[in-house]
Structure formats: C-alpha cells, structure tokens
C-alpha cells in the first residue's frame, strides 16, 4: 500500500558496501529498532497468541485453539452485538464515502478552478482536522444537546420546532449525526489529496479534449476523473481503515455503550467493552475479536487496493 510506493534507492544515493562499519550501522539503526520492535511489533505478535488460549483472569489456563473464536461468534450477547456493530461500521463507511468524500472532491474542484483565497480556504476547511475526535465529540454533544443546545435553539428560532429533537438520544438520528460530525472533522483530508492530485494533472490534456469537441462535462469525466483514480483509491482505503478505527468520537457522543439502544455501537467500542468490562476469559475473547477485526480490515484494504489499481491501469 503506502509502503509499496517507496521507490528503490538510486544507486548514486548510497556509498559502496564495506565503507561503513557494522558499529555505525548498529548505532544508527538499533535505537529505532529496539523501540519499534519492543513496543509495536512484539505486542502485535503476542496479541495473536493471546487469542489461542482460554484465560482465567490474567493467567492463560489452557490452549484453546480456535475455541475463543467460536465462543465469540456464538455466545450471547456477543453473537448479536458483533453483527450489529459490524453493520454500523459498514453503514458508517458508506455514509462517509457518500458525504465526506464527494463534498471533499467538490470543494477541491471549486478551489482548483477559483484559486483566489485558496490558501485561506484550505486552512479553514482543514481546521477541524487537527482537533481530537474526542473533543469534536464533546463539542457536538454540547451543541446538539436537546434543551440547551444551540442547534435546537436555532431551529426553534427559525420556526422549525418539529425539527428540534434529541439528535443523539434518538436511535433513528444518532448514526446519521455521527456520520455528519465525522465528515465535518475529516473533510480537509480528501480535499487536500484531491487538490494535490488535480494540480498534478497537465492542463493540456483537458485542452486537447476540448479541441476535439468534448463538452466540459465529458472532459471532466473522461479525462480528468480517470486521472484522479489513484487519489480516489488512496482515499477509499484510508476511509475504510479509519471507519474501523472509530472509537474516540463515538465514546464522546454516546459513551462506551454506543448511544441510545446501541444505535452507534461499533466494533471498536465492542472490543473495549469485551477487553475491560468482560468476564474471566475477557483476554482470550477480546483478543480473538481484535484479530478477526484486523483480518477483515486488512484483507478488505488489500483487496480494495488491488481492485482499484487494476481499474487504474485499464483506464
């Protein structure tokens, strides 16, 4: 994915072998290697083994093979919570692609065509990007609160009393509000990526199409859009991964139970509850759950990347 884009080193960039001693190589590489190995790689590898044991508190009691996986998928209430949470994650992904990324593309195209004030708009649109999702959640929970929130107040003032509602307390609106709040925060990302991609496309291509008599619309869809496909691919994969990492925002908007009757429950929250609010075998079960989530996300990301790249080549 991203790593694959690193170009192989040009030969002129390196010195010949043998000129740098092993001591220097160790001095330069070991600190990063130890830090990264100890606190990222080892825990990740260990996490895989945790799921294979039945645990009693913090002691592994017996080897369970895939027992934990079976347990997690069949035992009540997890067997109902997992599909529900997964469904919310998928709805969230679809909603985010439909709203955040299309609006992001629209803003990028507008800015590309009207570069006056581009820098200012870029900055303003990406401002929420920097704020922690947790804080974004708290900000919106205050703004959307049923009686004293400014949003409902403004709706009532505008005579739209019927629209004023407990946005986050109503199972019907909670998830859509979550998608919108999330899009509000991240829209700067797709916008900047699309803007960079648009800037990288030579104008001559579209001009040539125009000379051949293509309409503006056709020039965009047939010439420019296909060249944006790499950007679309990157954004789709990033959005997908981001959707499954969802935790802080939902925690702030709906607590660790996922809002009104679990309407915003997602896999991240479910994992947290299983790991830290679960029973005696919580380590085994939550590790199995984490690994299933990881395999799905990683597998789908790789497949998406492959699929999009193949389309790119064809176009």
């Amino acid at each position: 994915m991203i790593a694959a884009k690193v170009r192989p080193a040009r030969s002129r960039g390196g010195y010949r072998a043998g000129r740098v001693s092993l001591g220097w190589i160790a001095t330069f590489c070991l600190p990063a290697l130890v830090l990264y190995g100890m606190f990222v790689v080892v825990p990740l590898v260990t996490a895989f083994s945790y799921g294979l044991f039945r645990w009693e508190g913090i002691r592994p009691a017996e080897f369970a093979g895939l027992g934990n996986y079976q347990e997690v998928l069949t035992r009540y209430p997890l067997n109902e919570e997992i599909p529900a949470a997964l469904w919310h994650n998928l709805l969230f992904f679809a909603g985010t692609m439909a709203i955040q990324n299309t609006v992001g593309l629209g803003l990028a195209v507008l800015l590309y065509r009207n570069p006056r004030g581009k820098r200012l708009f870029q900055t303003v649109f990406s401002l929420p990007y920097l704020i922690s999702p947790l804080i974004v959640g708290y900000i919106w929970s205050l703004l959307l609160s049923p009686t004293f929130g400014p949003i409902n107040f403004l709706l009532r003032t505008a005579g739209l009393d019927a629209w004023a509602r407990p946005w986050l307390g109503d199972p019907d609106t909670a998830l859509p509000v979550l998608i919108l709040v999330n899009a509000w925060q991240w829209i700067g990302g797709p916008m900047l990526i699309f803007l960079a991609a648009l800037g990288g496309i030579p104008r001559e291509l579209e001009e040539a199409a125009a000379m051949d008599g293509a309409s503006k619309f056709r020039a965009f869809w047939s010439v420019r859009f296909p060249l944006l496909m790499p950007a679309v691919g990157v954004i789709t994969v990033l959005t997908f991964i981001g959707c499954f990492n969802l935790f802080d925002l939902v925690y702030a908007l709906g607590g660790s139970d996922g809002g009104p009757s679990g309407a915003m429950d997602v896999l991240g929250l479910l994992y947290y509850r299983t790991a830290f609010e679960g029973g005696t075998n919580s380590i085994g079960e939550s590790s199995a759950l984490a690994i299933m989530i990881f395999v799905v996300v990683f597998g789908v990301s790789v497949a998406l990347e492959r699929f999009l790249r193949r389309r790119e080549v064809r176009m």
């Binding site: 990222v40 990740l44 380590i283 590790s287 984490a290 990881f294």
Partner: peptide
C-alpha cells in the same frame, strides 16, 4: 498495521 491491536499485550 494498527498498533492498537497490541493493546492488551
């Protein structure tokens, strides 16, 4: 790879 996967270890 999401580093958070290794949270429990």
């Amino acid at each position: 790879i999401p580093a958070k996967l290794g949270l429990l270890p």
